[in-house]
Design a protein around this nucleic acid. Sequence first.
DNA 1: CTGAAAGCGCTTACAG
DNA 2: CTGAAAGCGCTTACAG
Lengths: 356, 356
Amino acid sequence: MVYNSGEMKNRNVTIEDVARVCGLSRATVSRVINGEANVKPLTVEKVNQAISELGYHPNIHAQALSGGGARTVGIMLPKTWRSYYSSLLSGIEEIAAKEGYYALVMTRDYLNSSERIFEEGRVDGFIFRNMDRVKEHEKLLSKLQKKNIPFVLIGNPLRDYPAITIDNVGGGRTVAQHFAEHGYKKVIFLSGPKDNIDSNDRYFGFRIGFEERGMDPEGILRLQGDYSTKSGFNAVSEVVPLYRPDAIFAANDRMALGAMLCLHKSGLRVPEDIAVAGFDDSYFAKYVTPALTTVRQPFREMGTTAMKELCSMLGSGSPRGGKIILPAEFVVRASCGCPYSHDESLDVLDSDENNE
Amino acid sequence: MVYNSGEMKNRNVTIEDVARVCGLSRATVSRVINGEANVKPLTVEKVNQAISELGYHPNIHAQALSGGGARTVGIMLPKTWRSYYSSLLSGIEEIAAKEGYYALVMTRDYLNSSERIFEEGRVDGFIFRNMDRVKEHEKLLSKLQKKNIPFVLIGNPLRDYPAITIDNVGGGRTVAQHFAEHGYKKVIFLSGPKDNIDSNDRYFGFRIGFEERGMDPEGILRLQGDYSTKSGFNAVSEVVPLYRPDAIFAANDRMALGAMLCLHKSGLRVPEDIAVAGFDDSYFAKYVTPALTTVRQPFREMGTTAMKELCSMLGSGSPRGGKIILPAEFVVRASCGCPYSHDESLDVLDSDENNE
DNA sequence: CTGAAAGCGCTTACAG
DNA sequence: CTGAAAGCGCTTACAG
């Protein structure tokens, strides 16, 4: 028996249609849909049969209106995309699919619209990435928390909001120790935006690592960048004519790239004259010349972890979660001064899509 | 007068609350919300006042249920993200925000769920990018069309579905003519996935350009890739030991990069021994060595254009749109054999976020 | 210019 | 194990 719903015009199949076909009430059909236990097995079968024959799909708005929630989460990302957000999203989506959630993605102006979107019922909770405008985010987040609106941050923990972050301190420290092993003493730290906690933590770890190797962290020259390639280029170009460091550690790969371009333009060789390391392990890191030594962020895992956290908050009705810190892997390539062949990147070509 | 809605627990502000405060009916409040003309100015003012004092936001599900639509569009992207999808999304979102739409982004398994998502009422229409699995897409799209579900494709036009595409033929042609000017005669075309129409069109244009310069397009060696860096590497590594072309044109930048890595590994210099050109102008194109000559896709504009098209379909109720072809700009750098200084990339560092 | 009432498509006590 | 009815928060003829 085929009801040919596909050809029907103007009206969708509703729970009423299913009920009528089965000679049951909407209530019973609803119970079957929601997998409630107290329904006669034969009835369940009949209803499921009718549902699939009619091609019935419950209307999400009706479900949401009668208390089900939107089963949608808002994924709020910075306007200036970084390619690795893709991996983040991919991880988020994997869990979302599993849990029956959908992702509403916003990158524009969400500081002003997050609250509204929630109150309109569009989303049940949020995942935020990006805290560049710290004050504004702080304001938004404290308001959301006050209203018991569930959210999770990825990276950049502010105060004690629930957050998934990586071991920035550990990453920075490893770089410092590696630099020390190379014998680099005079070093530059190229920082991200002011107040950016990720960047500050990387700096902090960098100092610790240096100190642990018996060097004075006060000797580290800290330059201000904003995570863009250009800012890395500019920052380095302002000091390098006068100041000649042994090595530069940039708070992200883009600035590291900018620094390398600048050094190259100044006729300096990387790593022979000045070594460079970045942070992120972006797609291009292994393909630039020399291949960039960096700290890999497990973006995909950050996404899955964040979504799992959010789902558990959503499920429990408890709006507060804790902090989760994921490890960050040090990736040695050529720009730090280690021997490295581009051949090695070929082994990982398959991971093309990993940290794209 | 502040009603302190923020502190209220357990219940949202509804249209009923607004009506009560104003001493009006829900109907009238609804009219004000929807900007209908036939409402007394003083009433409008009173209602708006109450709305802002109560912090009222119409529940989207109630609106959708009573005929308003979800005001959401499904943005269906490939699972293997490319970084330039970011630009696409950014363009889409810009228009969406303007028109009061939201983006539900999916990259997984959407072939099986698009129809359901629409029928659940989650989205009003779709934008698709990615046609790698041509057969499956064809099947999905024809079903959607039959059901009068609005959608727009970005790139890869299939049959006569509404689509935003770029001038692939023109791009390929320009590359061929540029190669000809360099005097390259023996050339390779490194293609994307089989049946990928974008890739095929680039090949077609490449042939035309060659022919127009009085050369035999049959002489072009066509290698099979799949748009991944590795596939570019592998394809080239299989032929280059025996076959030594003057130049390689890859259907995208990643494969061009893979080709360059392979040539480099084989001890061949780019462009001195073999020239290379790509397609896309990805973020890394200007930073690899040598900087990659390529054809730039206006991703952001593709996004805005697609969303505008979709909105106009949604507005008019007409599910069918036409095709729009955007121009593709040829970007000359070093890998084709032209003189080029990395300094030039510095001028465009600001566009960091453009085709990221 | 405004209101009473029906309806959108579900879920969920409540009663049996 | 099942149904009748109320309710979720809107919009929209219809009537005035």
